[in-house]
Design a protein around this nucleic acid. Structure first.
Lengths: 335, 335
DNA sequence: CTGAAAGCGCTTACAG
DNA sequence: CTGAAAGCGCTTACAG
């Protein structure tokens, strides 16, 4: 067995020695220190030496000195991530990397207080998709860490940065169905209690849109993701008076389950009931009939979330949320 | 505007003072230092003081001292993540957290050498889903960092830890179709060149299974994720001699596109062509007909990946990969 | 069993 | 314009 020989790290001192300057100067050059005028020649010498030695500053050391890391902690609710959220996280990771920040995700569990995690990790910022107690937010801020909330925030929260206007999703769904002439709508969500807060925001937006458009309030029902559950609900709609003609689905999964339930009863969209989903799952285009849905543009959302963080960390006010730009209506055949 | 007052951190010194011992003892107690016998009373005093002060050790300081962080760097190929991979990452994050490790993901881009990232971050381990040069692996190991590869590794790699046997997926697909009496098979993948290495591994497994079962080699075709592209291929199958009766789809998206293509030509599964997918996407159960597919059990896979890391970091040999346990055949109607 | 001290690799006031 | 020095908060060999 050959022992693995580990080489000593290249440090700023090595670069300094190679460039014939002090560590101080190396740091100034490498960090583009403002208020510091370095002659071009010195700067070049340092950069050249750093390149030659393949120097990478150790982030742990920098963090210890600065008091915080270059990490952004994303706190997630403790349930399986929707596809849409996975995509947002994926994009956000890339956007933050572009800003020199690393994303770390954690599910919010009662067993591990958020504040402890923050103290241990010393992140540059915290973004929470989970409800946070105002006192929790205050404690984190007291430690000097920037905190933002996203996607699902309650109105009385200390935080004012909602990124994806969930209510807008519900409103868009209603507007599209209304434009197709539907005046009796029904909302279908999942029985899963873990998505209820998100459901409530979307439903709220739908209700307000109905009010604006002078439609009756939508009826509401929750289903499981099974053919039987969906078929049972569809059967109920057929008997109800007034009979709904437009179906607002919580997401594409629900929408496709409803389409399957309709099919099992010999019904089809949009003739019997028009159905609109949310998420634009890849498979939705192949649903029978192809699903009309609302796409959450994860690139736009992630970029905005990254902006909130970078501005927030710098103590500046983040740019206004791009509201409708975050959504796209995808019209196919189901509505 | 009220200025935000930031409180000084609670450090090990504070705990030491409160407990009436030295920092050394605090560290010994909190880290359960082996070879160190601390009387129960001292231990209790320290633990109590730490709890009372809500002390959380700063990971940056610990990392600087130890020479590496508690971070695991997961290197991803630079293309959109499949749903299956997102789920694996989600589970892996939780499994590693249980072991006191933090997962950070990075897409492998030529612009940023992996070695630089490793030097800067000083992770406890690197897991790569991207092809790594042997020299790159050697350089990283020279720095004392444990490296493992997963999912897609080439046979001549320095790394020997393949976690999800992609070839097995292809083999299972063939075995299921063969058991249904299909003897002429065809493989359908995506035109997208970014998935070709994964495709090749699965296809390879399918071919070997055909050999074992004494079937003809499957024909191979790539499609785009559009109805037209799928329909064109289905039309071609109808004319070809020998005519395939079983379709091995690269994943559920391809499978559902094929089903849609068939439907557009008045054909249906499994009567005209039996179709089997991979991934068990949530919407696959509502495909027409419901899709038979292979589920990659992300929990099992993630746990094994986490084991590889924890054993590897400790310098021990990781347990054998749970091969077939990582897969489940989901039989529905399409095959 | 316990503690004083060194040192991990940075950044940044401060002095020149 | 540049550098010597302090110090961020830990862990751990070493001495008692």
């Amino acid at each position: 067995v050959k022992a693995v020989e580990t080489r000593r790290r290249v440090t700023a001192s090595d670069v300094a020695r190679a460039a014939g300057v002090s560590k101080t100067t190396v740091s100034y050059v490498l960090n583009d220190a403002p208020d510091q005028s370095i002659p071009e020649q010195t700067r070049t010498r340092v950069l050249e030496a750093a390149r030659r030695l393949s120097y990478s500053p150790l982030s742990a050391a920098r963090a210890l000195r600065r008091g915080h890391t270059d990490t952004v902690l994303l706190v997630l609710p403790d349930w399986p991530l929707s596809r849409a959220l996975s995509l947002i996280i994926e994009s956000l990771t890339e956007e933050l990397e572009r800003d020199g920040l690393s994303l770390v995700t954690r599910k919010h569990k009662p067993s591990r207080p958020l504040l402890d995690m923050v103290r241990e990790m010393a992140p540059a910022a915290v973004i929470s998709l989970s409800e946070l107690e105002n006192s929790e937010v205050a404690d984190i801020r007291k430690g000097g860490t920037f905190v933002a909330a996203a996607l699902l925030t309650s109105p009385d929260s200390l935080l004012d940065t909602v990124v994806v206007p969930q209510a807008l999703i519900g409103a868009w769904q209603v507007q599209h169905l209304a434009a197709q002439g539907h005046r009796q709508l029904t909302y279908v969500a999942l029985k899963d209690p873990r998505v209820s807060s998100c459901r409530d925001l979307r439903l709220d937006g739908a209700r307000r849109a109905c009010l604006d458009l002078d439609l009756d309030m939508p009826t509401v029902a929750d289903i499981d993701l099974t053919l039987e559950s969906a078929a049972t609900l569809v059967r109920k709609w057929r008997r109800s008076r007034p009979r709904p003609t437009g179906v607002l689905a919580y997401n594409d999964e629900v929408a496709v389950a409803v389409l399957a339930g309709m099919r099992s009863l010999g019904l089809s969209a949009p003739g019997d009931f028009a159905v609109i989903g949310v998420d634009n799952e890849p498979l939705s285009q192949f649903a029978v009939p192809p699903l009309t849905t609302i796409d959450q543009r994860h690139g736009v959302i992630a970029r905005h979330l990254a902006d909130i963080v970078t501005y927030g960390v710098a103590g500046k006010t983040p740019p206004q949320a791009p509201r409708s730009e975050a959504l796209t209506l995808i019209v196919r055949e189901s509505a």
